[in-house]
Design a binder for these strands. Structure first.
Lengths: 214, 214, 214, 214
DNA sequence: TATGAATGAGCCTTCATTCAT
DNA sequence: CATGAATGAAGGCTCATTCAT
């Protein structure tokens, strides 16, 4: 990310990154190609290479933006419903699934999944630490809050409960973009119905969390 | 997978697939290239294209083998320890981590992660259903077995408990190959120590499962 | 063409050449490929290379057979109708068009056209002289016969009349396999009808020859 | 033919097409290869694929240019000699044979022959109609002109005479590039001399036309 | 600084020919 | 002698990157 890029309007910067992110999301890092990124982003090839030194730099800039979005647009906007941990979690699940804001950023869900892959391990080192702190802190705080409120079993250590919730949220987020994860989830609960609806999946997750943490 | 390939010794077939799988695992589907696959597999380019119609067909054959390995070498070899669900799970975790057999097949762990990615959704449909049935059935049977033995809380529905265990096992498997997943896991439990050891991670998972399911 | 090939039954030899000729005809010399030739001819690749030294040798053998067919099956079987040159020519045109024998050898019509192309000039030298003597002699004899019978204008030199008839026959033969030549022919006579039928084309050629030579 | 190509100077466009046409002419459509086309045309492989989507598109652009040349450089430049049809035809024959302009475009004569081949039938449909109208109209007008001038027999229908002349011109053009057609022609007239000269061939054709049409 | 044409290494795939069985 | 698997050079095409304008 060069100074030429930073001189652009912040909104233009995001426009470019969001468009480029779509191409990376659709095709994977190696499958994405620069000319398509440029035409999607409405930027000439020459300009892109003025903004970024190479393909990798574009990708890293996108991952940085992903971190910002996660912090500001996702966790930053979640309102803890004081009375109920389950309602809070349900709100989060519904946001991910239905909010137009989240669908606008669908490509980042996909890329979040991608950086978990082995072939992108090289990117994880520099990127993951920041992401995961945000999520971990959020869920740990939430768990402690509701533990104090007596809504959660006391005999589950906070970090274990936080990890548990984060895992379920993460795997649910995966089902929103990955066929594999969707099929995997549905398989476990097929006695809830042959093909599950989004509503059913949300209900199942809430049921699970209730059974396990209360 | 053409007849020419099927005429090879089964062991030679597997040798080729295992070698090719390493290249796909290291680079991702799009990043893997045929010449490298061939040289790793000790096969000429011409021969590879006699064996398989194209790159995709090679990949699909690898995914098929992955299914066989999962059924026969992984779940097929697990001995349920009659006395303790935790011991059984510990055995599985230790196998994944330490058994030379499993390290020999490390590439398939990586590819298992990869088919969860959005850009390989096209492969998931035809591949995932088989995999997931194997895992789901195994854990459901295990849960029911130990429920009857009184080792598990009765008030957790079988499919929820099975999904829970499978999720933890899956995410643990991911930590074995994905830096992102490793960092994510460790972050949640950093008060167990600054940098976790494999032993500690296994202990944490067992602690979690004990707390939650018993 | 090696001795191993010549040891085969003559009918088997022809079967192989006829099948190979189809592949060359459909795809052109460069576009034809050996494995397809082999599978069409019911011959293993190894066997083909025992029979012929290389692709070119196969092609040359086919051209030789084309010469034999032209002499024996085509000109050799034409009956001169003593009374009428036009009936004789009509017989030839109808044979080319409708006789199942000729349709069986359609691939050779195509190849006859092909050796007229510049990129196959290398083959023409050794092949054409023989072909063209056969045709030229036939038409020269025919013309002289009917000149004596008073059916043709005396003031057209025999070789010119023979060349004229051969040209019309050749270009007609081309229309049977070449879209370009078919369109070209029809264009000239479109006031005979929007799209010409085979019968109309034959009639047109006979009309032309009558007008011109009588 | 993409916009990138059309943005080049018209003369550069033609330079590229003319050079590519030589490679196609020398080797046939299937035998021609892209790297050679590029080096002949002085264009990088990448550039060629910016200009044209694929090999076929290059070929089609060449055929389009062939149509333009035929209309503008060939028929467009022929001066009808008012006094004599034979002089007019002789002019045409001499132009084809000797004009440096025509030798510069020799490759298109070859390709004109090639699109008559069966294996290029796919191209004929879209290309031939235009070509053939140009030729047909020219010769029909010429015939009618000289019929009115009393230089031609009245009892030969215009379209038949036009087809006759066009056939002779076409077959003569073929002799200029095809060994097969050259040998074929010479064979018919070998009593004019053992090996014919170009001058003799022209004379023979004019003799033929005189005998037949006057 | 912005553009997009140009480059050419490298990709996937084919195929004429060879050779072990 | 027959088979068909194996070889690898070469084919058509793509794409990350550069550079003249």
């Amino acid at each position: 990310m060069n100074s030429t890029f930073l001189k652009l309007d912040k909104s233009r910067q995001n426009e470019i990154l969001d468009a480029a992110a779509i191409v990376f999301a659709n095709n994977g890092y190696h499958g994405a190609n620069i000319p398509e990124i440029c035409s999607q982003a409405g930027v000439s090839v020459g300009a892109l290479y003025k903004y970024f030194n190479n393909k990798e730099a574009v990708f890293i800039a996108i991952l940085k933006r992903m971190g910002d979005l996660l912090a500001n647009e996702f966790y930053g906007k979640i309102q803890i419903n004081e009375n109920s941990i389950l309602t809070t979690i349900e709100d989060i699940l519904r946001s991910m699934t239905f909010t137009s804001e989240f669908n606008k950023y669908r490509q980042y869900f996909i890329l979040y999944l991608d950086i978990g892959s082995y072939s992108l391990n090289g990117f994880a080192e520099s990127i993951t630490r920041r992401f995961e702190n945000i999520g971990r802190e959020f869920y740990q705080n939430m768990v402690e809050h509701f533990k104090k409120a007596g809504q959660l079993r006391q005999n589950i250590a906070t970090e274990h409960a936080a990890y548990f919730i984060d895992s379920y949220m993460t795997l649910y987020a995966y089902t929103l973009v990955s066929k594999h994860h969707l099929i995997r989830f549905d398989r476990f609960f097929k006695n809830y119905g042959d093909s599950l609806s989004t509503e059913q999946r949300i209900k199942i997750i809430l049921d699970s969390i209730r059974m396990i943490l209360k």
